[in-house]
Amino acid sequence: MTITEEDQLDGMKEIGRVVANTLRAMAKAMEPGMTTEELDAIGRALLEREGAISAPEEVYDFPGATCISVNEEVAHGIPGPRVLAEGDLVNIDVSASKNGYFSDTGASFVLGTASPAQAKLCRDGRKAMQLGIAQVGSGRPLAGIGNAIGKFASERGYTLIRNLASHGVGESLHEYPGEIPTWPERSERRRIEKGLVLTVEPFLSRGSFWAETAEDGWTLLGTPPAPCVQYEHTVVATDRGPVILTLPG
């Protein structure tokens, strides 16, 4: 989506606030002994209260309102009977629509007390996303996002999962300009136009390069297996740089 009118921006800010508040509330509600299905139910109730519709369900018939991925699961984890435990690395991805506008956000959390290695991975995952967001602005190269994230990851000994990319969003969950690499890609020559709405969502890992689909047909597992985090915001490009749309409030 390319925003050209103020009402479009208002609509994107509204659904951005909804998914951000839902993500924050789900993270706060997590506790050992809870199932991912119970956590998902909290997210569903919050979305419904705001008049929003789960995007994975609406667009892909996903079996859950949100995606909850635990430990070895990188993305698209199906909410179900899995019981959360102290020390689990949990990724929550919330995307939804309201009044025809879609927004997408996600973050990784350690349940309870994080180990030093877990804390560092989460801290660096968030930093990688922030570095990518800083490259967004009118007329700037799309490749700048992946170049900045890739440089950070390489310097710190991380890998990036290279078949899970950022993407355009706004009037649908995945749209123009299609996939946007969050790793260095020499063939990426496109420029960011003013008003373009996109996600920035690197998958930073301590060894995984690829995500493969599990037997359930949805859940993605890192290959080779290694801890992985994902942080995601929906942003809009302006002449003054990025504006983050998925902020709680």
Rank of each mutant, 00 (worst) to 15 (best):
V90Y: 05
L142C: 07
V90M: 10
V83I: 15
D104R: 01
N99D: 15
S115M: 11
P81T: 11
N163G: 08
V169N: 00
S172F: 12
I149M: 07
V83N: 05
G144R: 09
I161W: 00
C122V: 15
V169E: 02
V136I: 08
D104C: 06
L121H: 02
P81M: 12
G106T: 07
S172I: 02
G132L: 03
V136C: 08
G168Y: 04
G106Y: 02
Y101H: 12
N163H: 11
G144F: 01
D88M: 09
A75R: 09
G137S: 08
G168C: 06
D104L: 04
C122Y: 01
L160F: 05
A114D: 04
T105H: 06
Q130C: 10
S97I: 07
G77M: 09
Q130F: 06
G132P: 00
Q118D: 11
I145L: 01
A85Q: 13
G157T: 03
A75N: 12
A148H: 03
V169Q: 02
V74A: 09
S166R: 01
G137E: 00
G125P: 01
K120N: 10
R156T: 14
L173I: 06
F109W: 15
A134C: 05
Y101N: 10
S172D: 10
V74S: 05
S97M: 14
G106E: 01
L173Y: 06
Q135E: 13
A75D: 13
V169S: 00
S95T: 13
V110W: 03
E171M: 06
R156C: 06
S138Q: 08
H76P: 09
H76A: 13
A128K: 09
E86I: 09
A148V: 09
A96N: 02
A128C: 08
G80V: 15
A114C: 11
G125S: 08
N163P: 02
L142F: 15
I149V: 15
V110R: 11
I92M: 13
I149R: 01
R140Q: 15
A119L: 14
Q130M: 13
I92F: 15
K120C: 12
L160D: 03
G87T: 09
V94E: 05
K120R: 14
D124Y: 14
K127E: 12
S154Q: 12
A143I: 01
G144K: 03
H167P: 09
E86G: 08
G106V: 09
P141A: 13
A134M: 06
C122R: 00
G146D: 03
D104K: 00
C122I: 10
G77T: 12
A165F: 13
K127M: 13
F152L: 08
A96F: 11
Y101Q: 07
A85Y: 07
